[in-house]
Design a protein around this nucleic acid. Structure first.
Lengths: 181, 181
DNA sequence: ACCTGAACACCGTTCAAGT
DNA sequence: ACCTGAACACCGTTCAAGT
């Protein structure tokens, strides 16, 4: 039951490492954050990071998964909300990680690890949206198409600056157009 | 009327430079294409490029403008088409520059030049879409919102791999939902 | 198991110098 | 006006060595 000391230490170290990396990635951007900078912040040599993660991209994936599970933990709380509010919630949840969202898209071409993470992430999100739509009475094929559209809209809103009114109008229109009356 | 020799030479050089850069950016990606690589392909020293462009980002902007005006030249040909076909055309037009689209988004945070270009580009595209929608009888405020949505859908389709059927379904649904019947 | 110093092969960019 | 050689201050990553 009780974990041995070594394993606990590793977890603690990774936790420290990933939260520092997350903070810097979000503040300075992925490209703006060098491995050396992260290491300096932690008080270790730059190459020490490579004992924990095989590459900067793998470190990013670890950070993404942290962010993800933090968000997922809050998911049950929105189960009862209408579609529009669910999308607004998702938007607000990802807004804090905006920098990471664009980074993932930017590195898709260059990193297989990121590509795998991204694909799996989209599958997960789309499955959740499809489930919601079907629960609201949308036919399966149509629900799949609309889930993709909903995802594109959320990504678009994340990537481009916009007013509260614009966001509201877009989500409202989507919910009305998507759901059977 | 006749341009002096120097000016002609500059244009020719820039043309050569930008088409080489464009080819490499599209093939190897922006990050995957070093200034040295472009220079080597042209048979000049790496720092020679900095006589023509103050930075790699400015070279990218020059390439983007080239690509843009090539696309714009084909614009009059689609004037009469229905909304859905116009979007499909835009999608196909940008598909060749997919790599550049994601690069622009990736570098927004880091480069003011790219940010300016991107903003101006979106203004232009949205104005064109709004014009089309209003011509089809959509009210101005609604047309503006739908132009944003349309842009997000095109960007989403560009960024994510998808089947022909998916694309068709999404564009069809958007056209039907957006236009008054 | 964990960490380091030193190095490698790059990168975008600058600068002084050549023609 | 146009181009170069040499350098600068980085970068992610590797490796052999230490404890």
């Amino acid at each position: 039951m009780a974990k041995n000391k070594r394993e606990i230490d590793l977890k603690v170290k990774q936790e420290e490492l990933e939260s520092t990396a997350a903070r810097l990635f979000l503040t300075l951007g992925y490209d703006g954050t060098s491995m050396s900078r992260i290491a300096r912040e932690l008080g270790v040599a730059p190459n020490t990071l490579y004992w924990y993660y095989p590459s900067k991209d793998e470190l990013l994936v670890a950070v993404l998964n942290r962010q993800m599970s933090a968000t997922l933990a809050r998911l049950p709380g929105i189960a009862g909300l209408p579609l529009k509010d669910k999308m607004a919630w998702a938007l607000q949840a990802f807004e804090q990680s905006r920098e990471l969202v664009t980074t993932v898209h930017a590195r898709l071409e260059q990193s297989a690890v990121i590509r795998e993470w991204h694909e799996q992430f989209h599958h997960f999100v789309e499955a959740a949206v499809i489930h919601t739509l079907e629960a609201e009475g949308v036919a399966p094929a149509r629900a799949a198409m609309l889930a993709t559209v909903g995802t594109f809209l959320v990504e678009g809103l994340l990537a481009h600056p916009h007013s509260e009114a614009q966001r509201e109008a877009i989500l409202q229109w989507f919910a009305v157009s998507a759901l059977p009356d």
